[in-house]
Amino acid sequence: MSRHDAGKPEQAAREAWLGEQARKPRRRRVVLADSTKQRGKALRTIIELEEQTSVGEKLVRDLIKQQLKSAFGLAFAVLIGMCLLPITFYLFPQIGDLKILGIGIPWLVLGLAPFPILYGVGWMFRRQAERHERDFVNMVDR
């Protein structure tokens, strides 16, 4: 976003949302509540992140890449699993004749099985995503 159209009202709102750092990276005085060494380092990294120094940008890029990798991996697994079912049923119609306890296997596969599986995948993603975030915070807090 260029500087010269900063007069527009939506531009003002955007800048307010982005915070001062987005407008112009500039020096910032930080008042520390506790002046222990560790906390200071963490804050410095946070500022680094916000000002998008090369280190900060690298960190964020890595985090996004990690999150995207787990999201895409799980989404593809689920989507491919789902997409294989109709074609299997189409190519092998005899599956429709198989029964367990009087209920056709396709009814069980489509009516009951997907829900626990979907929840399980969601649970795995949540665990992975939160682990990535914890690692990131730990790295920043180092």
Partner: peptide
Amino acid sequence: DVNQILLRLHAPDPL
């Protein structure tokens, strides 16, 4: 400011 925005979208909440 795309980097700033992506940082905001993906940075863990405690930060």
